[in-house]
Simulated scan of single mutants.
Amino acid sequence: MSVATAVSPMLARAVDTVPEPDSVPGGLSYEPKWDGFRSIVTFDGTSSTIASRGSKMLTRYFPELTYAFEDLLPEPCVLDGEIVLRTGDPGGEHLSWEQLSQRIHPAASRVRRLADETPATFVAFDLLSRGGHSLLDTPFAERRAALEDLVGALGDPIHLTRTTRDVALARRWLVEFEGAGLDGIIAKPLAAVYAPGKRSMFKVKHHRSADVVLLGYRLHVSGSGVGSLLLGLYDDDGELHSVGGASAFSDAWRLRLIDELAPLVLHDEEGTVVTGETERNRFSANKDTSYVLLRPSRVLEVRYDHMEGERFRHTVQFERWRPDRDARSCTFDQLERPIAYDLGDVLDQPAGE
């Protein structure tokens, strides 16, 4: 494989628990699941490029990282890793998805300013090519050893992710590292070759439930049925806050929801349906962000991974309606908050455990 060859990242399939090391031939290696932009970095010995999981070029958005790759990497290589953004003071650092997402901006001047104000970090967790020689057919245990040799001592902003073969320690990481904003645990078969685009790894993420208030809905992009539900929670002062959305409904379900939610739709004095609009961002600049307002009286239970600030980090999953719950009882107090954990302790520990 040439270092210039585009590679689709190897993927992971979700499992409910951290798997035992003997569940696959050759055993497993465990590492933190980072919450950032999955990236394939190609360095040809002179210049570097950064491609996203979907092969979108990210190079222009992270000039500080391209400079670091070109200055620090000792030889041509292709790295698989994650771009993350660290925020907070030493001793209380954590990952910030919100600040990271702001880096995707069309204005070059803003990109340069943010590169200075909120520089990104690259966490390497696999090595696909070294010195122009492909490692795709090399077992992960050998790729990991080569990765440690190549980037283990480079220093900020290029870090080597921690790994362990101790399943008990991996399960402890699943709990502890969430406090620093990490997303779960990845388990990689030690004997497996790199399989671009294939779900050859395992991922374990946090799954929790919460009872939330239905605030409104967006129409599906097809114009037929409900596309997503807007959700809210009450604070201690009785104010209702938007906390995210739920989607992924079947075609038949989307149509049923229109009729089911019709009695809750708010109308003005002239009988016109009341609508609102969510805040636009760089990812929704060309999207319809309007929604139909509903009387905030219906409660539903949802599954979620974790919170960032006062919002669900990802789109949540609908579980069931909760007709037994009063909307006013749906407060932030019910949410499980992870114990704080310093991101620096995740990044700066030895690679092997």
Score class of each variant (00 low, 15 high):
D237H: 11
G92I: 00
S224L: 08
V221G: 03
R172N: 11
E239P: 00
L127K: 03
T5Y: 08
L128T: 06
S29R: 07
G216K: 03
R144M: 13
R280Y: 02
L190G: 03
L169F: 07
D259A: 14
F318C: 00
T59M: 06
A168M: 11
R298P: 00
T275G: 10
G223V: 02
R256C: 04
Y194H: 12
T289C: 09
L136Y: 10
S200M: 12
S297Y: 07
V7S: 04
G91C: 05
D71I: 00
V3I: 13
R254A: 11
L264F: 12
G197Y: 08
E178K: 14
F202T: 05
V175G: 06
P9G: 08
E93K: 12
M201C: 14
S2E: 15
S209F: 09
S222F: 07
S96P: 07
D259K: 14
Y291S: 01
I104S: 00
L182P: 05
D288Y: 05
K198F: 10
T46L: 14
L300S: 11
S8R: 14
D126R: 03
P263D: 08
P189E: 02
E301G: 09
P189N: 08
A68Y: 02
S297D: 13
A153Q: 10
H207D: 06
S200Y: 04
L255N: 10
F43S: 02
K56H: 09
G245T: 13
A246P: 06
G225A: 05
R303F: 08
P32R: 04
Q102T: 02
R328F: 12
W97H: 09
E301D: 07
R53Q: 13
A14E: 15
S8N: 10
D235R: 12
L127Q: 02
D259V: 04
H267E: 14
P63T: 07
G184I: 08
G197N: 09
T66A: 03
E98N: 10
D137S: 15
P119T: 03
H241Q: 11
A68L: 04
D126S: 02
C330H: 14
T275L: 05
R13H: 15
A12S: 15
L85S: 01
P296W: 07
A340R: 12
F249E: 00
E117H: 10
R162F: 01
P9M: 05
Y234A: 09
E319V: 15
T163H: 10
E310W: 11
R110H: 11
H220S: 12
A285H: 05
E82Q: 12
R311E: 13
A191I: 03
E176N: 15
P90K: 08
G27L: 04
N286R: 15
F202V: 01
D35R: 10
P350K: 14
L294P: 05
H206E: 12
G27N: 03
